[in-house]
């Protein structure tokens, strides 16, 4: 399996990639916040403006952008193929369309979870 083929919007692994990225980001976030609070807790007076929330926010923003970009790429691929292959039995438009939706769902999940960075100070129990 070559890498370049796997990165095509039509490769079935695209169906799994978005949420895999989300899950890895989510675990990194949870682990990072827990360890950060354990070793270098910011003072509660800082509220939401502290190094943990800031780092988490930046990482989340990057992942969100990545997922949205992937969604757009897959969606464009789908539109191109849907125009070309009306009636064709190949599954490629299927994969690109579903992958676009899955990337978008993962982006939504990223956005919703990172919204909480604005609602909770990190280390209070």
């Amino acid at each position: 399996m070559q890498m370049s083929k796997m990165l095509q919007p039509t490769h079935p692994l695209q169906l799994l990639a978005g949420h895999t990225v989300w899950l890895l980001w989510f675990c990194a976030l949870y682990a990072g916040v827990s360890l950060g609070c354990q070793w270098f807790p910011p003072s509660p007076q800082q509220g939401f403006w502290n190094w943990i929330s800031a780092t988490a926010g930046l990482l989340s923003g990057a992942i969100l952008a990545l997922l949205l970009w992937a969604a757009i790429c897959c969606w464009r691929s789908f539109r191109r193929q849907a125009v070309r292959s009306a009636g064709d039995a190949q599954p490629r438009p299927f994969v690109a369309a579903v992958a676009a939706g899955l990337y978008l769902l993962a982006a939504l999940a990223t956005g919703l979870v990172s919204l909480t960075l604005l609602l909770s100070a990190p280390c209070l129990q």
Partner: peptide, 26 residues
């Protein structure tokens, strides 16, 4: 996939920091 990121909602009362709880809530 998402179901693998929810497990701590069974542990909301064990004393985990607020932000982590919020992640799992969302």
């Amino acid at each position: 996939f998402i179901s693998f990121g929810l497990w701590v909602h069974h542990m909301f009362t064990v004393g985990i920091p607020q932000l982590a709880l919020a992640f799992f809530s969302a």
